[in-house]
Structure formats: structure tokens, C-alpha cells
């Protein structure tokens, strides 16, 4: 069981650069420990978001999710070095494979099996080596969900699993043969909506995000979760999002009334999860961030 749990917010710069930075500043003000920025080939460049957020905050830890398929290991290492050097040791890195479809749109194709796996492993090695040589301390996570990627998780300082349910976490631990011990950290990241005042608009975004994650799941995972036949081949349409059964959604999305967050966190702790990242649409507005922060504050005040 994890002794302590740290919490983070993943901020997507859907509404512009400075708005994303302001959300990070708000997250620090409200007592959240981490803000994560993840790479998406059609959105702003995460290292610059992290840099601007660092310049406006003092204690907030900043996570960068970068794909070595899009950036060279030397560039990633160099980016981390610059950030660590000028803004202090409060950055963490998560290497992610990235979305296949999105990557193919910018000319990055992975045809050979295991290609992404090898690239990520090599990148980890080079980045760790260079940061160590420069005397920097920076945790390097692996962001993963699929069974192949999970197998290499033990080579990293932590696994940031794209999942929301106990069932998926248990499955991932089994698949990866991971033992959460020593300095290794198990974290989860999922589309989230923890609320006090329910907003239909945010819930719709959450369902869509869950559908994207579900449709991108591996065959093995789809089988494990008992995907109905129609869903196995489905593409992302309004109808798919609408029809997606709740038993599937809950594996990929955290949707909770604020007062129920405590039980959820406790159940994850028992599995060894020590870092929990609430992803889009929890960052929808300062209000939705505030509702999460209040719920987390209540948790800490109850021990």
C-alpha cells in the first residue's frame, strides 16, 4: 500500500497558451502539488508551457510528457537540463509513445513491431545518462497503457498508467510483473471530472475523452474489459460516445462527486498507487480545478 499519495492536474492548452499557464498558477495557489503538460502534435509546445508556468510559480512540480518519436533524446535531455538549471529541480519527465494516428499526420509512422518500444528505451537511457552527467536529479516516468509498453515499465522510475479503474491497475501490474517497491512509483492518469456543481458540458467532454482512450486500447485490453462486438471496430463518432457503456467508460475516466473522492483514492492506495493525475476536462475552468482542489483538501484534513 502506498504511504503517501501526491496529486496532479494535467493541463491541456485547448484555449491558449497563457490560459493554460494561469491554470497552473491557480493549481499551485489551491494547493495542488503537480501540473502536467503532455505532448500533442496539434497543440502548443509543452516545454514552453512548463517554463512559463515555472516562471510564475515557486513550489509547483511540473511534469512534461514528451514523445521520443517526435523529439530526439538529445533535445529532450537538453530541454530538461535548461529547465532544471534555470528554474530549479522541480521538473519530472514522462516518456510517452504518443497517439499513432496523430503521429502519422506529421509523418511519424511506426511500421515495425517493437519500434516504439526500442526508441523509448534508448531515449530513456540517453536522457538518464546525460542528466546524471550534468548532475541533475529528475524522475523519468513511462506513460503507458498497452501490454507491450507495460513490459518495459520496470526500467523507469515510475509508471504513469493511463487508467481509472482498480481492474485496469490490477491488470497492468500483472502484465508488467511490476513490484511497487524501492523508489519505483506507480501513478495513474485519466480523464477526470470530480465535481461539486455538476456541469453537463464538462461531463460530455469527459465521455468523449473516455471514448478516445477506449477506442485506442489494445485488443487484449478490449477483450479483458468485455468490449461488445460493435465497439471493437467502432470509430469515434457522436453515436459511439453516446452509446459507450458505463462499465467501459469507468475504466478510462474518473467521474466522481467530490465527497466520493476519498473512497476512490483509498482503493488506489491499496494497490500501491502513489501519484494520481486528473486529466482533461478537470482543467476545463478555474472552477472545475477549484472543486477538485477543495475535495483534495478535505481528504488531507481527514488524513
Amino acid at each position: 500500500m502506498a504511504e503517501k499519495m501526491s496529486f496532479g492536474l494535467a493541463v491541456a492548452a485547448e484555449k491558449g497558451f497563457w490560459e493554460a499557464v494561469e491554470k497552473a498558477v491557480e493549481a499551485e495557489r489551491l494547493g495542488l502539488g503537480y501540473v502536467w503538460f503532455f505532448d500533442r502534435p496539434c497543440l502548443v509546445y509543452p516545454p514552453l508551457l512548463a517554463e512559463a508556468a515555472a516562471s510564475q510559480t515557486s513550489k509547483l512540480k511540473l511534469g512534461l510528457g514528451l514523445s521520443p518519436l517526435l523529439h530526439s533524446p538529445a533535445d529532450i535531455a537538453s530541454t530538461m537540463e535548461t529547465l532544471l538549471k534555470f528554474y530549479g529541480e522541480r521538473f519530472e519527465l514522462c516518456l510517452i509513445p504518443g497517439d499513432k494516428v496523430q503521429l502519422s499526420r506529421v509523418g511519424v509512422s511506426l511500421d515495425k513491431p517493437g519500434e516504439a518500444l526500442n526508441l523509448i528505451l534508448k531515449a530513456r537511457e540517453k536522457i538518464k545518462e546525460r542528466l546524471k552527467a550534468e548532475g541533475f536529479s529528475c524522475r523519468v516516468w513511462l506513460g503507458a497503457q498497452g501490454p507491450e509498453m507495460l513490459k518495459i515499465a520496470g526500467r523507469f522510475d515510475g509508471l504513469l498508467l493511463n487508467a481509472a479503474s482498480r481492474k485496469l491497475v490490477e491488470w497492468a501490474l500483472k502484465e508488467s510483473n511490476l513490484r511497487v517497491e524501492g523508489g519505483f512509483q506507480l501513478g495513474i492518469i485519466a480523464s477526470s471530472y470530480v465535481y461539486e456543481n455538476f456541469r453537463e458540458e464538462v461531463y460530455r467532454i469527459l465521455r468523449r475523452a473516455a471514448a478516445v482512450a477506449a477506442l485506442g486500447a489494445s485488443k487484449r485490453l478490449k477483450k479483458l474489459l468485455g468490449f461488445p462486438e460493435w465497439l471493437k471496430q467502432a470509430s469515434l463518432t457522436e453515436e459511439t460516445v453516446e452509446k459507450l457503456p458505463w462499465e467501459i467508460v469507468e475504466n478510462f475516466a474518473i467521474f466522481l462527486e467530490a465527497e466520493k473522492l476519498g473512497d476512490y483514492v483509498a482503493s488506489l492506495k491499496r494497490l500501491g498507487v502513489s501519484h494520481l493525475v486528473f486529466s482533461h476536462p478537470q482543467d476545463f475552468s478555474k472552477e472545475t480545478i477549484g472543486e477538485l482542489a477543495s475535495a483534495l483538501k478535505r481528504l488531507s484534513s481527514h488524513g
Binding site: Y45, D75, V106
Partner: peptide, 16 residues
């Protein structure tokens, strides 16, 4: 580097 990365980084610097 991938041209999309250059485009995104330049845009981010323009905004920043």
C-alpha cells in the same frame, strides 16, 4: 526536427 514541432514551438514563443 519535425516541422510540426518547430511550428508549435514558434507559436508558443509568439504567445509567450
Amino acid at each position: 526536427r519535425n516541422l510540426s514541432t518547430l511550428a508549435r514551438a514558434a507559436y508558443s514563443l509568439h504567445e509567450a
